[in-house]
């Protein structure tokens, strides 16, 4: 149900001239992809710097809140451009990406990273006054920072995997993978085959 709806949306996007032009344009597509990777460097690099402070591994002589406050604006600037270029990349290859198991895991990890960031921010706001200048923040904060790094490494990793075609819908693979990737056509034919056997 959701898969059909998503595929219809992707097919609609795919039918637009801009989407086709972008995918077929060697230079435009490469510029957008390079922008995505370079802003990833800015965003993730600064995120790592903040999280390493929260783990007590970097900038230990500086108050944690100061590192977070000062590095967050440039980090968010990188984030915004990264998200925009990411949406453009999706727009240029919508159908295949929608039915990519890697892309789906990536979106789940992104949502998880967002929730973790909000929880972390609240936990930090509430308690930071008592440990701001400690070189080693409390365990709760360290866990939050560790989870943040783990989730973002997962996002980068699954994002990189989208380019590989190991689990594309047209491939021969276990039924479970068709379900995970949401391959509408393949799932339908599995269902018909099952009905015929009965």
């Amino acid at each position: 149900m959701v898969n059909e709806w998503l595929l219809r949306l992707a097919t609609w996007l795919d039918g637009q001239q801009w989407s086709t032009d972008l995918h077929e344009s060697y230079y435009m597509y490469n510029w957008v992809e390079s922008t995505h990777v370079l802003t990833l460097m800015v965003f993730l690099g600064l995120l790592l710097a903040i999280d390493l402070r929260m783990l007590g591994l970097a900038f230990t002589g500086t108050p944690a809140s100061q590192i977070a406050d000062r590095l967050t604006p440039p980090m968010l600037a990188g984030f915004v451009v990264m998200v925009i270029s990411g949406l453009v990349l999706f727009y240029s290859i919508p159908v295949r990406t929608t039915q990519s198991v890697w892309f789906r895991i990536k979106v789940v990890l992104l949502v998880a990273a967002g929730i973790n960031a909000l929880l972390f921010r609240n936990a930090m706001k509430r308690s930071v006054d008592s440990w701001d200048t400690d070189s080693l923040p409390p365990a709760r904060i360290r866990w939050g920072a560790g989870i943040s790094i783990g989730l973002w490494v997962g996002v980068v990793s699954t994002g990189r995997m989208i380019a590989y075609d190991w689990f594309d819908c047209h491939k021969e693979m276990p039924d479970f993978m068709y379900w995970a990737a949401g391959c509408v056509v393949e799932l339908a034919s599995i269902e018909t085959a099952g009905a015929m056997e009965e």
């Binding site: 990777v37 990833l40 460097m41 800015v42 965003f43 993730l44 690099g45 600064l46 995120l47 790592l48 710097a49 440039p74 490494v153 980068v156 990189r160």
Partner: peptide
């Protein structure tokens, strides 16, 4: 990629 981000972030 993650190493590049770490390098880039710290250089920045």
């Amino acid at each position: 990629l993650v190493s590049i981000a770490l390098l880039g972030g710290m250089v920045l």
